[in-house]
């Protein structure tokens, strides 16, 4: 191991009040391995008898320092003490631990890969936002249980059909159509246009109870409630899902038939 760091400069010892006579300083430098025996400084000092004597003495001391005293073998007692505090694991056990770790990591990777795949193929499956309640579900629930749905959200979906026709359809035309249709849905206090992550592939996937609005648009029907026009400005319209909530609580028990009436 080199005892001198590359590019290191030699310190001036005068600040420590050292006896800066030539031999002493040169001897220190030599013993600190800052200069070699071949250096001119060492050769000059070596011509002095006092330097040689001091050097010989120091080298004997250094040699004796390097001679290690008898060292007991502490390995067994150390390992036993370590084992008491933190037991060693047998090779078989370490193999099991390694296998367990590898399988855990592989499972995690597989799970993440699966999530990524599902996210890519069926993004709506992993949508963690509050899922919209399709009107058909509301109707079905009401018809079965006839429970009040007061206050619940009626959620519709407007989706752009992912066809060439739909993408080329002018939105300026779609917006008034949508507004008129919404007017027929009843009083809404909140229309939320969500990103187009819930885009429907075709009208068929919308299911019964949906109304096509214009070319390439579908909207849920929510039944006939209080009429109020709701026009979405063309500039603010984006294809995607809209969430409709009634301004007033719906009357006590809803007859499903009232929700299915024709547009």
């Amino acid at each position: 191991m080199s005892k001198q760091r590359p590019g290191e400069h030699h310190e001036d010892f005068t600040e420590f009040g050292f006896r800066e006579i030539g031999g002493d300083s040169t001897l220190d430098k030599y013993l600190n391995q800052e200069i070699s025996r071949r250096s001119p400084e060492f050769r000059r000092s070596f011509q002095q008898a006092a330097f040689r004597e001091e050097l010989g003495e120091m080298e004997r001391i250094v040699d004796s320092l390097k001679r290690s005293p008898r060292t007991p073998d502490l390995c067994g007692s150390i390992l036993d003490a370590v084992h008491e505090r933190r037991p060693f694991v047998a090779p078989q056990g370490r193999l099991w631990i390694s296998a367990w770790r590898v399988s855990a990591a592989a499972s995690l990777l597989l799970a993440l890969g699966g999530v990524a795949l599902v996210q890519r193929m069926r993004p709506e499956t992993l949508d963690l936002s509050p899922s919209p309640r399709p009107l058909t579900t509301v109707v079905a629930a009401a018809s079965e249980t006839r429970v009040p749905i007061s206050g619940s959200s009626v959620v519709g979906i407007v989706a752009e059909r992912m066809t060439g026709q739909a993408s080329s359809a002018p939105r300026r035309e779609a917006a008034p159509l949508l507004g008129r249709t919404l007017a027929g849905l009843g009083v809404v206090r909140h229309v939320e246009v969500l990103p187009a992550d819930g885009v429907l592939a075709s009208r068929d996937s919308v299911g019964p109870g949906w109304q096509l609005v214009g070319d390439g648009w579908a909207v849920a029907r929510t039944g006939s409630l209080k009429q109020e026009a709701m026009v979405i400005p063309a500039s603010g319209w984006k294809p995607g899902r809209i969430k409709l909530r009634p301004v007033e609580p719906m009357p006590g028990t809803i007859d499903p038939a009232s929700l299915i009436g024709p547009f």
């Binding site: 290690s68 005293p69 060292t71 502490l74 150390i78 933190r86 060693f88 694991v89 090779p91």
Partner: peptide
């Protein structure tokens, strides 16, 4: 990872230097 042999190797490698340092 709990390998006694490896721990022993580290001990055997360094016990002399640490012991002599502490003894001195």
């Amino acid at each position: 990872a709990g390998d006694r042999e490896a721990a022993g190797m580290l001990v055997r490698l360094h016990q002399r230097s640490l012991y002599t340092y502490l003894l001195r």
